[in-house]
Design a binder for these strands. Structure first.
Lengths: 139, 139
DNA sequence: AATTTGTGCTTGCACTTTGCAAGTACTAAT
DNA sequence: ATTAGTACTTGCAAAGTGCAAGCACAAATT
């Protein structure tokens, strides 16, 4: 756990995921079906390997992610969201909506359009899907 | 403008405010009626002066804040939100709600309780108040 | 007029984090 | 045995951060 700057819930949250990379990893798991180290590495933003390892460890320590051995390939790890991690969905959606609204270089794609048309509906639908996949502890 | 890592709206947003300090400054203006350099410095998280100057300049360059000479004291500057800045409110609220839900050390205060009871209502109410204060350009 | 106070901002330096390239250890497949 | 895949580590340069100390200017005080 990182050191706490104050007892403000915004400040406490930013102590955990207030950086340029953590929420992109969450996005990959949440919205892009990515589950493994090598898949995160392939994302277009090109995270460095040492940063990725560090962020995965922090997010696991914070109980936002759970790391398990893959059933298909025992030399591989699979990351999934806890309920605490899945509850970051509204934050991710709001950030996506704001980014799409104010950045010409970020065209809305399928999910972006859905959010623009019916934000609450999109969140509810995605939230239900995430709930099915939530991990409470290792299998 | 910082360099863009990808055309993902989440990534683009994090390029702008994905750090430990920017959203705390936004919070201070948005929810705590703070408007000046010296008031931001006094916040409990104790931002360093060089970081504060840098973040204010970035947020101003991104047209999230507007910097104006104070009418009361002409040697003082006053920062206020643009509509783009005010539209960060839902992100701030969601981060606050998540932080309060999952952090024992962050007790919900007045606004936190209001959000827990009626998030949409709280956002709408605050949004209306912010709209009155939004600056489009210097006075 | 000289001094003090308030405000915004800069500088220097130590420290930490990040980005990049390369390499290690282990497993699985061929 | 060799090759490929996966997760992770290391070394090092560059960038960002935290802290203390200052500067420049305006307003208020004496």
């Amino acid at each position: 756990m990182e050191k706490m700057r104050s007892d403000c819930p915004i400040s406490c949250s930013l102590d955990v995921f207030g950086d340029k990379w953590s929420l992109l990893i969450i996005r990959d798991i949440m919205l892009r079906e990515k589950v493994s180290y090598s898949e995160f590495l392939q994302s277009e933003e090109k995270i460095a390997t040492n940063i990725l390892v560090n962020r995965l460890n922090v997010l696991e320590a914070e109980k936002i992610l759970i790391k398990e051995v893959s059933e298909k390939n025992k030399s591989k790890f699979v990351y999934s969201l806890t309920q605490k991690g899945a509850d970051l969905l509204p934050i991710i959606i709001e950030i996506m909506d704001w980014g799409a609204k104010y950045n010409e270089n970020c065209p809305r794609k399928e999910l972006g359009k859905k959010i623009k048309a019916d934000k609450a509906g999109a969140i509810e639908e995605l939230s239900k899907e995430l709930k099915k996949k939530v991990r409470k502890k290792a299998i």
